[in-house]
Amino acid sequence: MAEIAIILLNMASYVLVLVLVALGLVVVFGMMRVINMAHGELFMLGAYTVVWLQAAGAPFWLAVAAAPVVVGAVGLVIEAALIRHIYRRPLDTILATWGLSIALKQAVVLIWGPASHSVAAPMAAAIGVGDVTYPVYRLLLMAVAVAIIAAVFWIFLRTDFGLVARAVIARPDTAAALGIDTRRIYRASFVIGTALAGLAGALVAPLISVDPQMGLGYLIPAFISIMVGGAGPLAGVLVGGGLVGGTNNLATVWLSPVVAQIVVFLLAIVIIRLRPQGLLGGRDGA
């Protein structure tokens, strides 16, 4: 019984982090058709922000709060220097952001070295209910992730910014003709997407080894989640992330992590092939 509870909790925390990463990716992809291959490196930068600030003596939670700001600022620079030149060339965004990811990875190697760093969890305590004990930090991580995911949904589905954003996604020219500054909306969405990646990286930093290669391990599952769920409605990320992350985590109960990941990727590729628009449908209007 206790074992099952722990498996489910582990699954939930992995799924939530994956959804957080994928959500940033889909905001950028759904909004601007920009495929950001450097998203994994922005996630990595979030984790390194914590490494950096903690080394400078900042408390953990302050470092976590700073991560989306730092990474969002990096995102702003990337948008201004790179992305805005290639908005109408989606395939080139893959290549250009790929070059960016290589450069970012190497910049981190130059600054912090190729070795992995570890971030101390702010609380080592575990909490127990019956015979189930679970680290408090992981529970907290889940709560924070749920809150952020809910906030992103609220922004895009309930606020005026979200209304304008959905209009720009559906019909950019018409939105511009109504006086909406589409460039500003694109830039804001890109920064939100990168800040989400940074925040996700900061939150999981205590749980994984922080190294320059960590981005890829989340980038591919995040992309696959989006493709499985569908890049249209935001809810597609929940479905895709839940399926990909959940199955992967569950499969590790019986299989080695490598085999589990291979099996999940293969299943996901079959789903993507059979339903290219994703389980919840593709990019449909606003």
């Binding site: 959905r166 209009a167 018409t174 209007g285 606003a286």
Partner: peptide
């Protein structure tokens, strides 16, 4: 072709 936002 009007270009209204169909889903809103």
């Amino acid at each position: 072709g009007r270009e209204i936002f169909d889903a809103l």
